[in-house]
Nucleic acid binder design. Structure first.
Lengths: 136, 136
DNA sequence: TCATCTGTAATTAAAATTATTACAGTACAA
DNA sequence: TTGTACTGTAATAATTTTAATTACAGATGA
């Protein structure tokens, strides 16, 4: 799996820590220590979910799109999630085998159950809860 | 993330479906549709956890190492798990930034919580439960 | 109209995953 | 005791995924 969730959380934490201010992708990138274009790309996705707002042009930048009390970590997870948490094998089981024929459906069902339990867990935590752990 | 969990479940399901019999890595590989050497490698790991037993030499092969009622899916998960379910970013946050300095610890804590909730979910399912879903 | 930012795509580089090949070691059986 | 058919394991190559880099059009304010 990749580090999209961590990157997203880092961005949101930064924005929450400086409410009202417009942070640039370069500033954010230097805190995370990744490329500014990646920050913009990641934000481009989070913006679709309303989590972040942006302003173009000179003196542009990024701010929270929603108050931190209203952002559940499950929302962040859903926004960045591409693969089931249990992973995803890329093999195509042999349909001539009785097990191979049925296993994908059963594994998919299980993967869904696990993803649901992750979401239920993350539903109990807001961005504000997470941010509150930081000491400045 | 990778497909190790799915591969492990596929192997265990095959072994459980033909109790007492010794299945070869080639047979297993053909059901999963991957390379036999990978099957042996994956089993090599599962064997460390007692989940699978093997017999070398001619007419060798693999069988269950434990009765399916005693194998929790959380055991399988733990055996194959290498990364936290939330993923793992490979950046090194900037220690000169107040957020960058603290965030790794908080994200790691969160990742642990999520992993725990996955394990708790998978603890409720045995391999026997999983196998029972198959119709032969 | 210039400077500084976002938005986005294209390309390259790096890392992780899976496949393949090879072969030593083990056990059974003729 | 020799051949056969497996496992166990490592080394290497191929593929896929992820992240970095570069580039530039478009927006906005001074």
């Amino acid at each position: 799996m990749n580090g999209q969730f961590q990157i997203a959380m880092h961005i949101l934490t930064l924005l929450d820590a400086q409410p009202g201010e417009l942070l640039s992708s370069e500033y954010i990138a230097s805190s995370i220590n990744i490329n500014p274009a990646l920050v913009r790309k990641e934000i481009s996705n989070l913006r679709k979910y309303g989590l972040i707002a942006s302003k173009e042009g000179k003196a542009g930048g990024y701010t929270m799109g929603l108050s931190p009390e209203k952002i559940l970590l499950s929302d962040v997870y859903k926004a960045v999630k591409v693969q089931p948490a249990l992973g995803q094998a890329k093999n195509k089981p042999n349909p001539a085998c009785p097990v191979g024929k049925q296993i994908s459906a059963h594994l998919d069902f299980l993967a869904d159950e696990v993803d649901t339990s992750i979401i239920n867990k993350l539903k109990t935590i807001t961005l504000a809860n997470f941010s509150a752990k930081f000491e400045y």
